[in-house]
Design a binder for these strands. Structure first.
Lengths: 203, 203
DNA sequence: GTCTATACTGGGATAGAC
DNA sequence: GTCTATCCCAGTATAGAC
């Protein structure tokens, strides 16, 4: 790779990193392209050499994220018993930390879908898509003869909505009101035993 | 009230109603002031005779909503046992239908808070505020010696987040993927018994 | 109070020198 | 590839006639 190309790559990286930082700090919609270039110490015009628009930049970040995620998730078997406290907690823990690490993208997508005009069901579709793995686990449980609280897609969406809203609300402030562990513990207890059985010892 | 004033009130109402409709259909951020006046069959300039800005109009809608809500909630006792299936379901049912009825405002606030620059914790604050009643019930349960899944504020926020995200995602499309009853039933089962105890008969 | 017409502004996007 | 300067538009908000 030549010096010229290296410099270009450097700029692209700088833009991405500036964007990630700003998306968390002030949100996707509030972040203007000029904010990004300024934060990356580049001129406004340079932005368009690398991305066609802010949406396009987000797409790129999303691609980066998927790259990481597909390694981590590699071959995730659906034969997991979410009624088992340990397994449920492990899942929630991974989910929570995945969101935390990818917070810029999560935030941006959240806000971006929201302003997508011609698809008022975009948010629902995204929610269903994001909770696909969860749904598979639930369907597996159902096949095992376990009675679910309801339709797997709906239950998965409900759980996912709880998780993402909480993360969005909690993680964006510099020092969250609750540490990660406590959140994951609480969600585990709530989702496993509900409100009625939370106090009981785990088998 | 004179004819003149009556006509003015009529316009104001028309603007509000147009706004409510559009906020659900295309979202708050996507709805431009000119869209509202057009939908209400009024001239652009007329808008400012009644509201200083779109934000101001939202404030007005919020005030209207609070008026209705305070009647309904009047004196809601905190001595409710949310571990009781019937009581839990009743609460979720009221919450769900309240959101449904006030969907325009719920959607608008959601999007508006999101773009509020200087307060990145706005969403968290709103969530805590909205789930206050729920929190009181949980604190009551705790006082009764019941073991909660976690800190009442956090649990309440988690439940509220689940509810509002689901409502936002589901209710905005013309024909939701699930009927209200099914959603409320599912949430009731999930929140009461969690994933592990859902199949058991209610005591 | 409501209208039409217009001024103003933020910010996305491009042109052209370097 | 990056820069500076500029164009351009959507949307907000105002002016002034009716």
């Amino acid at each position: 790779m030549g010096v010229r190309k290296a410099r270009a790559a450097e700029t692209q990286t700088a833009l991405k990193e500036a964007a990630r930082r700003l998306f968390v700090e002030r949100g996707y919609l509030n972040t203007k392209i000029t904010d990004i270039t300024a934060a990356a110490d580049r001129a406004t015009g340079s932005f368009y050499e690398h991305f066609a628009s802010k949406q396009d930049l987000l797409e790129a970040l999303l691609t980066d994220m998927r790259g990481d995620a597909s390694e981590a998730m590699a071959e995730h078997p659906r034969e997991h018993d979410l009624t088992d406290r340990t397994q449920l907690r492990a899942h929630l823990d991974v989910a929570w930390h995945t969101i935390r690490v990818n917070l810029p993208v999560v935030v941006a997508l959240h806000e971006s879908d929201m302003t997508d005009s011609d698809r008022s069901d975009k948010v629902w579709l995204r929610l269903v898509e994001e909770t696909e793995v969860l749904r598979h686990h639930l369907e597996y449980l159902r096949e095992q003869g376990h009675d679910l609280p309801g339709d797997p897609t709906l239950v998965a969406a409900a759980m996912g909505g709880m998780l993402s809203t909480l993360a969005y609300a909690l993680l964006r402030s510099g020092n969250p009101a609750y540490p990660d562990d406590q959140v994951v513990d609480t969600l585990t207890a709530l989702l496993r035993n509900g409100l009625s059985g939370a106090g009981k010892a785990q088998p």
